[in-house]
Amino acid sequence: MFSYIVKRILAAIATVLLVMTITFFLMNAIPGSPFLTEKSTPQQIELANEKYGLNEPYIIQLKNYVVNYFKGDLGVSLKMQEGADVGTIIFGQNKFLISIKLGLLSLLTSIILGIPLGCYAAYHRGSWIDGLLRVITTVGVAVPTFVLAAVLLIVFAVKLGWLPTLSGSLDNPLAYIMPVISLAFYDICYIAKLTRTSMLDAINQDYIRTAKAKGVKNKWIVLKHALRNSLIPVVTFLGPLTAGIITGSFVVETTFSIPGLGKYFVESVLNRDYPIIMATTVLLASLVIFMNLVVDIVYKFIDPRITYTSKEA
């Protein structure tokens, strides 16, 4: 068990380093210097290269970059907020906080709504509610986030005027409703589908029949036996879920003009502010990799039958 966890942690660190290397070399693959504009003179370029250490060999640059990153020095913005420290931009200006809040809310919403809906559908299999849920979840996984976000925006903010948008005031809790629903809807549907399928799988197992034979009430069979075993696929989905919410936040924050990290990242991509792109990519990728690591370890605890050594061999 212990060696497994250590192995997983090492693999996660290796992946983060890989992402950093990919990011670094992709950024360096761009012809010309990122500091090169129409106005810049050779002297200015030379100065900039010197200042940012771009004259060193790539391998030294990469080493400096990785070391600085772990020291918390994420580089300096080149275009968006010229000269400002990227770390300060991301963490200091509430951007990260807003996005994390939004992301966590969506994560919780999708789990809190998705699992019970899936259970309910499986428990009442064949009923009209099950049918309705199946239609909704099937359509739900086909609706692009930005379409859903736009529809919500049109209906509830513009036409009906019921809900405020987050861009106005960040303190109003009502303002979180639309972005969170847009972010979580796909995942609610996916988790509900997943739970229903694995629940139906579990219901056909022998131990359920045994429990029934013992005279355990249906409700308790579902809660104590079926649910626990059907949650395993849901737990594995948490990794992709995190990644999905991060990418979804790009779209949702752009649509609702929320001043979070997602919107900022998209802007920096469109403006080609390379240090910001690099730092944000590595940060978000680390988040996803960390989540995958947690899932792998939790998974092992939930289901000790899973032996990774044989799977990996």
Partner: peptide, 10 residues
Amino acid sequence: SVPEVLIVLL
């Protein structure tokens, strides 16, 4: 294990 959408954007 690499979060692909981020790399795609990049």
